[in-house]
Simulated scan of single mutants.
Amino acid sequence: MHRPLIKICGMTRMADVSLCTALGADLLGFIFHPASPRCADPEFVASVRTGRAVKVGVFVHQSADEVVEIMDRCGLHAAQLHGGQDMAFCEAVGPDRVIRTFWPETYTSPEAMVHHMENYAEVCGHFLLDAGGKGQGGTGRSIDFDSLQHIEIQTPWFLAGGIGPDNIDAALAVNPPGLDINSGVESQPGIKDESKLRAVFDRIDKVK
C-alpha cells in the first residue's frame, strides 16, 4: 500500500486552509454550489495561497464557460464536477483539469460503474467515487467500501464518502490512489475539527 493523495474539501476559512497545508494535504477543495452550507466566496478563494497544495473547485450546475471563468478568477488548478456532466463538458473544461464524480450506489454492480467510467478516461485527469447520487456530497454517509475492494480503474481516482477517524482504516483497505475528506473531519458544515484532522493524518502518515 502506498500513501494516497489527500484532498480536504469544503474549505471556508483561512485557519483551516493553513492547518490542512501544515498537516500535509495534497489538494484543497472549495465548493461553488449555492445550495451547499460549505459554499465558498469566490473572493476568498481567489485570495487563498495554498503553497504546494492543489486548489480544486467543486461545481454542480454551472455551465462549462462558468466553470472555466471561475477557475481563472480564483486561481484553481482543477475542477471537480459533481453534477454528472457529460464528456463534452469535461473536454471543454480541459481533460487534464477535470476530476469527474461517480456514485457507486447508482449502478447495478461495480463492474457496470467501471465500464461507464472507461468512457470518460480520455476527458478526465481523475475520477472520484462518492456516496449518494448526482449533485450530492458532504452528506456524511459512507460508501460500502467492501464492494470496491477488487475494482480495477486505470485512471487515478479518489475515494470519498464520510471519511474520518472512525472509518479511515476501512477506506485505506480499498487501497485508493486518493482520499477525499470533508464532513468526517468537521465540527459543523464548513468548519474543520483539528483533532479529527490530526487523527486522520496521523493514520495516513503511517502508510508507507
Rank of each mutant, 00 (worst) to 15 (best):
F32D: 06
D130Q: 01
E66R: 11
G162M: 06
I181L: 13
A88S: 14
L23G: 06
G29Y: 07
G132T: 01
H2D: 13
V93C: 11
P165R: 04
Y107T: 06
G29R: 07
V123T: 10
T155H: 03
D72Q: 15
G178W: 01
V174M: 10
R3K: 14
S63V: 06
A173V: 00
C90G: 11
A64E: 10
G57M: 06
G178M: 05
V68S: 14
A131E: 03
G10K: 07
A92M: 12
V67P: 05
K192V: 04
K192L: 06
D26R: 06
S36I: 03
E111G: 14
D180A: 12
Q62V: 04
P95V: 09
I163C: 06
M87W: 02
Y107I: 07
D65E: 13
G125R: 11
V174N: 09
H33D: 11
T155G: 00
C39T: 13
S18V: 15
E122A: 15
E91G: 08
G10D: 10
V54K: 11
I204F: 07
E43F: 08
M113E: 10
G161D: 02
L27Y: 15
P104C: 11
R141Q: 12
A160L: 05
A170W: 01
D205R: 15
D72Y: 04
D166I: 08
D144Y: 00
S195I: 13
K196I: 02
